[in-house]
Nucleic acid binder design. Structure first.
Lengths: 167, 167
DNA sequence: CAGTTCGTTCAATTCTGATTGAACGAATAA
DNA sequence: TTATTCGTTCAATCAGAATTGAACGAACTG
């Protein structure tokens, strides 16, 4: 017994979906993923995969990969709807949590890796120097610039937890 | 009288170029642009377009568009080298300035536009409501979520100038 | 003046990564 | 059991953006 509802969005929600999609796209994430989150963020009740695919006019395959992506970020969660075999999804509304988690999972590891990369580069620089591949000035110049960068990194590392508290 | 120098980089600088390229790429900017900045950031003396193209093994066309991009962001500047007709480029070392400028030029306008977008959406929501396109609950739910988002936006707007000062 | 050199532009190509349709396995229903 | 529904996976396609080669105009050179 399939419900054959209107399956279209009011303009407010439609525009919101579009905005969310573009935002994601700008950050290098798949547009459809952002659209899905946008759709769910303003959905008063959980939606099934088919709902999502139909409302966004995307394939069920896209909807599936998108939702799994969002689940892995804990940006949405699965909801069991009694009497319906299908999975339903709803957005996690607390964006603050979401940001914190995103920082922990994405930025922090990346920052840390970039710090060790810098350390490696400094070692590398000394090796090049010993191998006679750099002039005295070149060595001094690079060392100074790398140090500058390094100090910026540590400042950022200190800033982000503070920022998180502030928000 | 063309100088036929070795035209290759020590491993420290080569790795730095690679890292800078990947960083840019991650933020949706052309990789080559990041590579150019990385190359110049560790260059003790200004480089010509041809130097850049050769050292990075990219076409002169790419080097040209990349440098113009970076110039527009004030991330590099043109240097006049006496006795050489060609343009030479050097990186602006002060990343702090660069970040501030990037915020002013990129993030701030985008944030502001997103704020007015939200206001528009709230208007839109009321219109949908009056047109009878939304149930009472749907309207209330959306309004609450949009308000939540809106408040997050203003908090971010307040945070960023502070963060800038902190760095 | 003709002949180079330099930097930019633009159409064509290439790459990367998002999206899809089709096929599949698991779970449910009949 | 067989048939159907649901969600995932995967190879193929598609779109958009980066990159290039070629052509051009402007500035220099001799």
């Amino acid at each position: 017994m399939a419900e054959t509802l209107s399956k279209s969005l009011p303009s407010s929600r439609r525009e919101f979906v579009e905005t969310a999609g573009r935002l994601c796209q700008r950050f290098g994430l798949p547009r459809s993923t952002g659209q899905i989150y946008g759709l769910l963020y303003l959905a008063p009740s959980p939606l099934s995969l088919d709902d999502i695919a139909e409302l966004l006019s995307i394939s069920k395959a896209s909807a599936s990969t998108g939702t799994r992506q969002l689940l892995s970020w804990h940006a949405i969660k699965q909801i069991w709807v009694p009497g319906d075999r299908r999975d339903h999804f709803e957005a996690v509304g607390d964006l603050h949590d979401l940001l914190r988690a995103g920082y922990e999972k994405f930025f922090r590891p990346k920052l840390e890796r970039s710090v060790s990369k810098m350390d490696h580069l400094l070692v590398c620089l000394e090796a090049d120097r010993k191998a006679g591949l750099l002039t005295k000035e070149e060595h001094a110049f690079c060392k100074e610039r790398l140090a500058h960068l390094r100090s910026l990194q540590t400042r950022v590392q200190k800033l982000l937890p503070l920022a998180e508290k502030f928000l």
